[in-house]
Amino acid sequence: MAPRLSSVGSIGMVIGRRALSGFVTLLGVSVLIFVAIHLTPGSYEQVVLGPRATPEARAQLAVQYGLDDPLPVQYGKWLGQAAQGDLGISLITQAPVLDEFVRRMPVTLELAIMALVIAFIFGVPLALVSGLAGGRRAARHGTRVVGALAMSVPDFVLACILVYLFSRSQWFFTVGDFAPLGEDPVANFRAMFLPALTLSVFGIALIARTGRDAVQAVTQALYVTAAVAAGESRWQIIRRHILRNAAIPVLTVTATFAGYILGGAVIVETLYGIPGVGLYVFNGISSRDYTVVQAGVLLAAAIFIAINILTDVLYGVLDPRIGSRRARG
């Protein structure tokens, strides 16, 4: 029997350990991007000065940006600057990349949160209804078909359909008329809803399917039978036992889904014209703005690691068995 450790202490330790390993991962990612970008054809000089620049101009630029240094030295410099919060200057706009990220981040964050909320609003009830319907065939097959469909439609296809429908009509939601949340919340919501919905469809299907399996598994657990034997009502059983126990696997796929949003945001923001980080990175890619791409990938990796740490902590909170095993091990 494990004596209960202070849960705050053990969670703190877990976060610390994970953050450390996350940092190492991030360092690895940064090396990879750096090397990858320097191996892609087309150099900084070409991008900035164009194909017809004189060799002298190129050389001057190379010296200016330190591009004639050996690669490891360049990396060291870049890393040193990045550590101080300087992610470099956009080659195209000459604006600091970090400033641009900071300015655009809230928009993308809003989009991600909306997508998550929508996914939960639809996914969880679907999971519960189909999970509790149990053996009923209609419910079983229904959710399976809808789920498979929702998961296999690529988000750009869905986005194209929605953009087509809503840009030609006057139905409440708008396409391309973005307004900042702080200025006009209603217009903001009208513009953000469709992209968020597009992103959430995959999540709805993921949560509904995983949740249904989890609910089914939990309803067959002996402690649910015991709750029935104790005379608890259907709702009491759902509230007290099923929700929390079934939440554990759902949490895992939610982390997966959050990672998916990260990538999906690039496409969805571009198609709907939402001025978030995704659009910025997309433009960076298409205009070969290497500093932006480099910083974007690094940022994505950092967020992904953070999501995973958060998931781990939530696991410990939701499932006490994991918490104490960790504290011991």
Binding site: A221, L222, Y223, A226, A229, A230, R244
Partner: peptide
Amino acid sequence: RFRRRQCGFIFQNAMSALDPTMRLHKQFRY
């Protein structure tokens, strides 16, 4: 009501008949 007030049921495998995510005092309270 009958299950709640009149007839208790004790399972063979107590460990899995107790909700793993709920502290003992809360299970007792319920």
